[in-house]
């Protein structure tokens, strides 16, 4: 009865767009409800929501993405002097505009991490990897990245990592293809 759990294991690979309604019959396995009379066979159909979002960046996030394309990391200086990366457009405390952008990293330190042993098809890596918050050198805050470390044993808080840039870069967060432990080859 109590068998349902987090559903990561049901992750489906991306499929081609199926907007056409193709109902199939699902036999309702659940009858322990007091709700509803139960029509017996419940109709089921897929819906894929897919938008080609084109987002305007504004000058600050635009500069961050420009930096990625040029293989540099850009942060912004907050009112209290901290360097924030990805750059905050607005002071996270006061809400005022931030306008001073500085270069940081690109190598940095893992401040926390989580090991994904079974990647989802949407994840940036198709093999086990670590999500990490990475504080680039010269920055005071951390950013999210995927660390390609091979095995969980190779990960630890405080380790140094460095970005591996994508060959084709367009000004997108995925211009960082992955991060790797600095011990695995430095500025690869």
């Amino acid at each position: 009865m109590f068998v349902d759990q987090v559903d990561l294991s049901e992750a489906r690979a991306p499929t081609s767009v199926r907007r056409k309604l193709k109902p199939v019959l699902l036999w309702s396995a659940v009858t322990d409800t007091t709700q509803g009379a139960g029509a017996g066979e419940i109709l089921s159909a897929p819906l894929i929501i897919e938008y080609p979002f084109k987002r305007t960046t504004g000058p600050v996030i635009g500069a961050f993405l420009t930096g990625l394309r040029e293989r540099v990391l850009i942060g912004s200086r907050a009112e209290d002097g901290r360097v924030i990366v990805p750059p905050a457009e607005f002071d996270p405390v006061s809400g005022n505009d931030l306008t001073e952008l500085v270069e940081v990293g690109p190598a940095g330190v893992v401040t926390t991490w989580a090991w994904v042993s079974a990647p989802h098809a949407k994840h940036p890596l198709d093999r086990p990897f670590a999500w990490a918050q990475i504080r680039p050198d010269g920055a005071d805050t951390s950013m999210l990245g995927a660390v390609d470390a091979g095995a969980m044993e190779n990960m630890q808080t405080g380790m140094r990592v460095t970005p591996v840039w994508a060959d084709e870069r367009e000004g997108h967060i995925c211009d960082i293809a992955r991060w790797i432990p600095e011990s695995d080859g430095g500025n690869a």
């Binding site: 897919e50 938008y51 979002f53 084109k54 987002r55 993405l65």
Partner: peptide, 10 residues
């Protein structure tokens, strides 16, 4: 400078 970015999502 980058002014926009495509972030398709399915």
């Amino acid at each position: 400078p980058v002014r926009s970015v495509r972030t398709p999502a399915q």
